[in-house]
Design a binder for these strands. Structure first.
Lengths: 217, 217
DNA sequence: GTCTATAGGCCGATAGAC
DNA sequence: GTCTATCGGCCTATAGAC
């Protein structure tokens, strides 16, 4: 197995060849659903409706195809920002619940879980994939959250002696504490909206007790 | 692929055939290091120093061998208890740091991570494995911790209006918040003793701020 | 660029001798 | 029980016609 998967961080200029998109789409679906090893190039070609030779004309190897896909996927592993990090808030709780809800829901999405599963499982064969996923997903989410917490700290909303980095990590940890492990293992039943809301509210509650400058109770 | 992996929770009466142990040991090492799909029965036989025919004489299929191994592994996914749950403590902090340190160190062990990786990656092909791992590992650890927290709550050490279940989940979440994600992805550098101690101290600090009955600061 | 057809190898699993 | 030898199949990857 030679790793000509190239750099995993460059989405690359994918021109608009329809067959190429068919192949990439088919491959992504199969890889995410079944993992790297369980997917054959035959299956990719069949699903995409092309011949294997065409597949190999576009992608030098199975590893290269996989690497290119994961690069695309990893660059989209951030939840939409929108108004998730408001500079000024009257109360920290609703802002944290919005941020936490969006973040946890994003991490419980099947495509996020699928990439996480594959990045973990293939971290030996494709260390670049694990690194790229981590750097493009969790690390960036954490950095944004840390900066926002520091901002709120400067505004007097967060305990002055807290470290924003730790506070951000603990917020993520609390959000992941209940439903995440089950979800990664694919255990039924899948979390529903009410479960997620409850988990987020609990995490925010604990976080505020530990990090809010002014305990509001 | 037929799943005659049988029940994953019964370690089964493995008699003391030396060759059988060689095969099981070889298979466990290979599966944990490389995952289910990447390991061939040829490799298992070669590593164990037996022929493939002998391997198949003992295990009906690759799936059966894998299932038997994971059943053994999953039944050992609890950290040693020792004096981790003392009924009466003067101060909650050192008890939590001992419990948290032992728990986090256990979850960062390469064999625990390897089983977690495989349970995740193969949760589609082997749903029983994911269930067994979860039930024998995280669920039991959480239950013990929850009961101990309830005990401490009754002793007046923990906030009276806290739910022990949530408090236990949040403790685990806080412990996993920093080093765990990196470790699951196999990202260097591996966590060292000092890193772990710092993570545990931070987690316990946040937990105590949120759940201690008597904030001692 | 895309196809059909196939090379060449490794895999899981088995037959049969001892 | 354990071995050697091998089967049939699927895999990645390629050759050659169009």
């Amino acid at each position: 197995m030679h790793h000509d998967a190239a750099t995993l961080d460059a989405p690359a200029a994918v021109e608009a060849s329809p067959k190429r998109r068919q192949m990439l789409d088919a491959a992504r679906g199969l890889f995410l659903a079944q993992g790297y090893g369980a997917v054959s190039m035959d299956a990719v070609a069949r699903t995409a409706g092309v011949s294997k030779a065409t597949l190999y004309a576009h992608f030098a190897s199975k590893a290269a195809l996989f690497g290119m896909l994961m690069a695309e996927g990893c660059s989209q592993m951030l939840p939409p920002e929108e108004n998730l990090f408001p500079a000024e808030v009257a109360d920290l709780r609703p802002a944290l619940e919005a941020l936490g809800g969006r973040t946890l829901r994003f991490m419980l999405r099947e495509d996020w879980l699928a990439i996480y599963r594959i990045a973990m499982a293939e971290s030996v064969r494709f260390p670049e994939l694990a690194h790229s996923f981590h750097a493009n997903g969790p690390v960036r989410t954490l950095a944004r959250t840390r900066d926002w917490i520091a901002q709120q700290q400067a505004a007097g909303k967060v305990r002055a002696d807290a470290e924003p980095e730790v506070a951000a990590q603990h917020l993520m940890g609390l959000l992941r504490s209940t439903l995440f492990l089950r979800a990664t293992l694919g255990l039924p039943p899948a979390a529903e909206g009410a479960d997620i809301d409850r988990a987020v509210a609990g995490a925010v509650d604990t976080w505020l007790r530990a990090f809010a400058a002014d305990p509001d109770r």
